[in-house]
Design a protein around this nucleic acid. Structure first.
Lengths: 219, 219
DNA sequence: ATAATTATGTTGAATTTTCAACAAAATGGA
DNA sequence: TCCATTTTGTTGAAAATTCAACATAATTAT
């Protein structure tokens, strides 16, 4: 566990928790660490929602596949970020989404019951964790607002540009990388891949952007 | 304020807080109560995000209007429900959404700073509020998951049916009312109103559903 | 290095949505 | 009650998306 203490320190869930207390608490929580291969389904839709996950290395995607086989990518989770917390916190019976390893990754799993219900020892850090979880959930909601703002646009072009402008603002530069390949970007934007490729070509011809694989430049 | 104690008691933010303590705390928070006419913009996009709102009577809608004038309805807020908490909690500088009165309504506004930063008296109820806020935010995220699940469908028909099935499950019956008129439903589903009307007619002809204004029956 | 696989871009046809315009029905106010 | 306004449903044309199929480029595995 010590191996990941630098990453854990950056995890929003453990903000203001000192390292030695953190290790103690994680032991008390019965936190376990597991490794997954690329493309492995870490949590499957419909499975138990009791665990909160934290990505320790690699990255994962939040996905949903509908009746027709359309995959919807709801977001990506990078190292030190938390996932499935909204379901664990509401004590939902099962997950409506899946979490899939985007590359080989290591995650920490914590049974959320230990976080929601103060243990008999009543650790003094518990309140801080609840506070951190609240902050984290607020940010999660804002991420969804962003996703909705992007996908509510009526055309592929507008969805793409809205997404790229968000990314550009986050990176603070007109030149940046995105965490998706074409198919993944299409699934995040909720559009057809070939139509997206065509639209990117058009925007390139119109000198609105430059792009090379995952790299984009807004002109 | 006492006038609304029954509604406040139902507010998820005040779960497990006793009435006399609640009144005391709201005074300490400097909570204020305001009334708004139908269609009045309670919070405008771009305005300060420091307040958490609670609907005491009537109902409101969370909306976003894009560059082209398309209105996106992100959700409705009924009496005793909380709004704008995700922005207040992250101490966001301004709101990316507007809150509009759906009918004449009364709301309570609380400066979130009082909730986030424990006052010098360190009220014993403070921790409970943070916990409640965390639960509330988790549910809010799940609402957005639902909205995304609905609007990520590729056709008007699928969006509508996915929405109606969610409503039906929530109500526990195949026969139920929705909180939207046609234009509002179209704006929630992120589709064209006339296309939605046409689709409802088709579904009626195919004996898949019955509908009369805001009332629907899934067959 | 080579073969196999995967990812990307392109195209045209079919489907669906959006848009605009209008008529009928329902609602609200004087 | 009657008039004005708003809401709803219908239609056809224009625009956009999806789908399928294929060629080429890039990546991965042997």
């Amino acid at each position: 566990m010590e191996k990941y203490s630098e990453i854990l320190k950056k995890c929003p869930l453990f903000f203001k928790i000192e390292n030695n207390n953190l290790i103690k608490m994680l032991t008390c929580f019965g936190a376990k660490i597991e490794a997954f291969d690329k493309k492995y389904t870490i949590f499957a839709e419909g499975s138990s929602a009791k665990y909160i996950g934290i990505v320790l290395s690699g990255s994962a995607q939040i996905i949903q596949i509908d009746y027709y086989g359309n995959r919807n990518i709801l977001g990506t989770i990078e190292a030190s970020q938390v996932f499935a917390e909204e379901f664990a916190c509401t004590e939902a019976s099962s997950l409506p989404i899946s979490i899939v390893a985007n590359e080989p990754c290591v995650v920490m799993l914590i049974d959320c019951q230990h976080i929601l219900h103060t243990c008999t020892n009543n650790c003094e850090f518990h309140q801080q964790i609840i506070y951190n979880l609240m902050k984290d959930l607020a940010l999660k909601s804002i991420d969804f607002h962003q996703k909705i703002d992007i996908t509510s646009k009526r055309t592929t072009r507008e969805k793409l540009l809205t997404y790229l402008i968000y990314r550009s603002k986050e990176e603070g530069t007109k030149s940046f990388d995105i965490p998706f390949n074409r198919q993944e970007l299409a699934d995040y934007l909720e559009v057809d891949r070939s139509g997206l490729s065509a639209e990117i070509s058009k925007l390139r011809n119109e000198r609105i952007l430059e792009s090379n694989k995952k790299h984009f430049v807004l002109l």
